[in-house]
């Protein structure tokens, strides 16, 4: 499957490397330099901006499948249907490593410059960002298998707007994130990781069923 994964990742890079990198750099500097002193700055960058950026890869690949017969071409490769679907999940999740790298860099710099939160809280923000990115990505991959490119794009936009709206509401209500941690931390993270894992299983099952049924 490494060939399929490589193809997906290189397609994403060739599609939008510069057009993605430039806003990423600008937002990075804005949240670190201009707005870094505010408590919401690392939260916005890690929990909202980066997950929405990295979870777009399923849409890019769906565009390649739809407009350039990428899926039809994949059927000529020596892979089972299970591998064709699974490789898409692997490549989209692997692509999150880019976001992970940016998160680590941002949080490290933010901690060194501002020390707004404790190291444990920074670690928690990082874990939260990673889980949100994975969650959004898994949902987007499933929608890309279930629907066409228009549906996938609309769903992604709605998803991002809902996430942004929820986040802005949370900012206006002025809630300290540490106040939300009413459950013991390990249990909380266990629940969050469990939600992402179950989402992954359900997402893959639905995608596999739809993909197998579409070759008719």
């Amino acid at each position: 499957m490494s060939g399929l994964i490589y193809r997906d990742i290189i397609t994403q890079i060739r599609y939008s490397f510069l057009s993605k990198l430039i806003p990423d750099i600008l937002f990075f500097l804005m949240f670190l330099v201009l707005l870094g002193k505010y408590r919401f700055s690392p939260l916005t960058m890690i929990l909202l901006y980066l997950p929405t950026q990295t979870s777009i890869i399923p849409i890019t690949l769906k565009d390649a499948d739809s407009n350039y017969k990428g899926r039809m071409l994949s059927m000529t490769f020596p892979f089972s249907k299970r591998e064709l679907v699974l490789s898409r999940y692997y490549s989209c999740c692997l692509y999150q490593l880019y976001g992970v790298g940016v998160m680590i860099l941002f949080l490290t710099l933010h901690f060194l410059i501002y020390r707004t939160y404790s190291p444990a809280a920074y670690l928690g923000i990082f874990a939260g960002g990673l889980l949100i990115a994975l969650f959004m990505t898994l949902i987007n991959v499933m929608v890309s298998f279930v629907g066409n490119i228009n549906l996938s794009t609309i769903f992604y936009i709605v998803f991002v707007l809902l996430a942004a709206a929820a986040y802005i509401l949370y900012l206006f209500l002025d809630i300290d994130p540490l106040d939300l941690l009413i459950l013991p931390l390990p249990l909380l993270w266990g629940i969050a990781a469990g939600i992402v894992a179950v989402t992954g299983i359900i997402s893959y099952s639905i995608s596999m069923k739809v993909f197998a049924g579409s070759c008719r």
Binding site: G3, Y6, R7, I10, T11, A64
Partner: peptide
């Protein structure tokens, strides 16, 4: 056809893994 955003060298890297 192949994805138009790719180069021939990308195809070499993809196909040798397949």
């Amino acid at each position: 056809n192949q994805n138009p955003r790719l180069y021939c060298k990308d195809l070499d890297n993809i196909y040798r893994r397949i």
